[in-house]
Amino acid sequence: MACPKLFLSCLLLQLMFLFLVPEAAQGQGLKVGFYRKACPNAEIIVKEVIGQVMSVAPSLSGPLLRLHFHDCFVRGCEGSVLLNSPTYQAEKDAHPNHSLRGFQTIDRVKTALEKACPGIVSCADILALVARDVVVATGGLFYYVETGRKDGNVSTSKEALNDLIPSKANITTLKIDFAKRGLSVKDLVVLSGGHTIGTSHCPSFSNRLYNFTGKGDTDPTLDSNYLARLKLSCKPDDQTTLVEMDPGSVRTFDIKYFNLIAKRRGLFTSDAALLDDSQTKAYLDFQIKTGGSTFFKDFGESMVKMGRIGVLTETAGEVRKVCSKVN
């Protein structure tokens, strides 16, 4: 298996997890400008639709970015998170995915692309392009997206339950789960920075407020003032309230969420865990000290790496005509 630009560290990771994730794809068959001849305006069309959506529903930026993450971490970046199941057994039906939003926006993009170039642009590529465009729309840096993915035809809620990394994960779990997907510790902390936009439902973190160790206690690592504010928003049995992951800056792609983590105000256990590793903490400290001097560039690079996970290309998979169902 090729290991471009990652050298020995990447090779070691692949060997470590070869038996855990057989034949983990590293993005073979992807390239920037894949649709240049077959659908030359593809990326322009995606950008235009996302611009229209962001002008009237800017709160969808976080959810649309999250869709790409949740797609790639289950079966790879092959659009399986978009599939519907008549028996409600698809990935989107798994409990961790109940809060996913933005499916109608993806359908809107797909409709526009099908009108311009029928049967050409995959739903998996749409997710990757949309993620980039919402990052740019909220103030992040443009990065080139590799395209050429095909769509898968399998989607199960059981796999989503097993493979999605829980918000309660500690640093050991996070590092192992990212490494299994060919992502480094740096990618872990960089991609966690995506929490700078978007919101979360109370159940994703309420254990930190009311029952951290199963004894009705709170997470001692949480800033006490932040803890008090979260309790005002989320009562013990609240299942529906949305809380900003980056209060006051939820619609701006910036490094303020890193500042919050350093102040013990990260919303999730997995955010707080970034302080428990010397490498992730050093990255946080550096970005805070330098005003995010490399974060925006790093984020684009890590997103490209994530977008190579488990891809289907060339004769594997298909290009769905409708993103919610196989052809």
Rank of each mutant, 00 (worst) to 15 (best):
R181W: 10
S233F: 00
Q89A: 15
D271Y: 09
V121Q: 07
T241W: 00
S233L: 01
Q28I: 11
L161A: 14
E78C: 15
K235D: 00
V190D: 06
F178I: 08
D238W: 02
V32T: 14
F178A: 01
K110E: 00
G62R: 07
L6D: 13
G139A: 07
V81M: 04
T218W: 05
R181F: 06
K263T: 04
K325T: 15
L113I: 02
K231C: 01
V56W: 03
I288Y: 04
V49W: 01
T213W: 10
G300I: 07
T147Y: 03
K231A: 02
P118G: 05
L232A: 04
T111Q: 06
C10T: 11
T290I: 10
C117L: 02
N41E: 05
Q89M: 09
F299H: 13
E43Q: 13
K297M: 05
D107K: 15
S293I: 05
A116F: 04
I120D: 01
D133L: 00
P58Q: 13
F299D: 05
A128Y: 06
P203Q: 11
R251P: 00
D133R: 03
N153G: 13
T280P: 02
N211S: 14
V81D: 09
K231E: 01
F178N: 12
R66M: 03
V130Y: 08
Y210M: 01
F103Y: 15
T221E: 03
F253W: 13
P220D: 03
V74P: 01
S122L: 02
L100T: 09
V185A: 12
L83K: 07
C39A: 14
V136W: 04
D177E: 15
V319I: 09
N170D: 15
A24Q: 15
D276A: 05
G140R: 10
L64V: 06
G198S: 04
F253V: 06
V130M: 02
A112D: 02
N162L: 14
L284E: 11
F7P: 00
V53F: 00
A137V: 01
L230F: 01
K325M: 12
S270V: 11
